[in-house]
Each structure stands twice: as C-alpha cells, then as structure tokens.
C-alpha cells in the first residue's frame, strides 16, 4: 500500500512540477504583460503544490529523500506525470489548450481528493483546489476568446485541440495504482471523473467554436514512467542542470 501511495503522490506532484516548469518558460515571452504575469502566477501556484505533494511523497517513501531530491535527482523513467504536460509550449494556443484540458481534470480530481481517507492528501487538496479553480476559470475563458476570435487564433486553437486530444485520455485510464487508491478511499477512480470532464470540455469547445476529434485513441506511459515522450529528457536537462553539475549546491 505505501508504495501505491508513493506512486500516487509522485503522479500528483510530477504533474504540477512538469506543467509548472513548462509554463514558467513563458516568463517574459507571453503575448502581453497581463498574460505574462498571470502565467507566472499559475506556474508558482503549481510549484507550491509540487512542494506539498513531493514533500509528502518523500515522507511516505521513508528513504531519507526530500521534495528537492525527488524534483532534481530523478531521471525521466522515474517521473510519473501525464504525457500531455511535458509537451512543448509551441505557441500560446497550445499552451492554453493544454492548460484547459488539465485544469478541468485537476479541479474535479482535487475536489474529490478533499474527501480522501488520507488526512494529508485531503489537506493538500483543500489548499490546491482554490488555485486550480482559478486556473480553470482563466484557461476556459482564454480558450473561448481565442477559439472564437480571429481566423488565425481560431485556426491555431483548432490545431492545438487536434494535437493534444490524443493525450487527454491518459488522465482517465485507471491502472493498478489507481485501483488500489480507489479501494483504500485515498483517491477516486480517475475513470469516474471522465463524464463530468467531458461535459465541461464540450461546453467550452462549443462556446469557442472548436471541434473535438472523433478518435478515442490515447497515448499512455507517463503515469507509469514506462514511456515518456522525447520532450521530458530535454526539459529535465535544463531543470536539473545545476544540481547535476554542482551536487548539493544550496543558496
């Protein structure tokens, strides 16, 4: 059980860590001062959540590691984040679409986790869910504004939806870890979140005049670490460079 819980906590923390890092790449580059600051705020929220999830994960593991060790000293195959979140930013449309797909899922998951049988999980979820609700409000609004915007913004958003759609299914694909968590009342079965997520996504897509692809194909391998995309290694090389070059460096 404790290994299952450890894996689950890594999934939560790696999701927020990887997405937080990706969004932080926009710092000083976003299409407008207001968006730049909003994206940085979102990234900081996610990094804060990462500290809580990975901090608890390190305690559960009981091997003397810290949240920092887990963030900076694990390699690609040890990461448990959803594949969608490690995808490159590409353009603002892809970034916002990825954010919306995840935020809609994240809010549902954290809402349910507030009732977790594990007190620490419930506590972290309660703190995180307020931030996630705000993230979702922003990303949903932007999807609608850009999808229902100019010809170019519409076309960019549609191409982002088409490209990211095959990565959305992994959020709801339950495996042994998910089943063990559900059985212990620690976390909901992710598949049980799908219908409500789909409702929200359908509504926003309609307002944004965007079309979801028909295909139900879903890339997998992120949550298990079995097969990450080629993007994660490059990201970690940048993110972990300092700790790798100067082990134990502090400031």
């Amino acid at each position: 059980m404790s290994d299952g819980l450890f894996q689950f906590l890594l999934r939560m923390g790696d999701n927020t860590l990887v997405l937080g890092h990706r969004i932080s790449e926009w710092c000083g580059q976003a299409p407008g001062l207001e968006e730049d600051i909003a994206l940085a705020n979102t990234a900081l929220d996610l990094i804060g959540q990462t500290q809580m999830w990975l901090g608890y994960a390190a305690e559960v593991e009981g091997a003397g590691r810290t949240a920092d060790d887990l963030a900076f000293l694990r390699d690609v195959w040890d990461f448990r984040n959803l594949l969608m979140l490690e995808r490159p930013n590409l353009d603002f449309g892809h970034t916002i679409t990825r954010q919306f797909f995840f935020d809609a899922f994240h809010v549902l998951l954290l809402t349910r986790l507030q009732a977790s049988s594990d007190a620490r999980v419930a506590e972290i979820a309660a703190k995180s869910v307020k931030e996630a609700a705000y993230h979702l409000e922003r990303s949903a609004d932007l999807v609608i504004a850009l999808g229902d915007g100019t010809d170019e913004s519409h076309q960019r958003m549609q191409s982002a939806v088409d490209l990211l759609w095959p990565f959305a299914g992994e959020m709801f694909a339950a495996d042994d870890v998910d089943n063990a968590m559900a059985a212990a009342g620690i976390a909901p079965d992710p598949a049980s979140l799908r219908a409500e997520w789909q409702r929200k996504v359908d509504q926003v897509m309609a307002d944004a005049t965007l079309t979801l692809p028909e295909s139900q194909f879903a890339h997998q391998g992120g949550k298990t670490g079995r097969q990450h995309t080629e993007h994660l290694g490059h990201m970690l090389a940048q993110m972990q460079w300092l700790q790798r070059a100067y082990p134990g460096a502090t400031w």
Binding site: L33, A38, N41, A145
Partner: peptide
Amino acid sequence: SLHAADAEAALKNARDVYTRR
C-alpha cells in the same frame, strides 16, 4: 491600468497584476 478585451478579463488581469492573490 492594464489592457483587456472586456471587463471580466480586466478583473482577472487586475487580480494577477495588482493584488498578488
């Protein structure tokens, strides 16, 4: 001041730019 498409977006941006949550 700030730029925004409409009042709702202006409120959201103001929260991020000026209130720090």
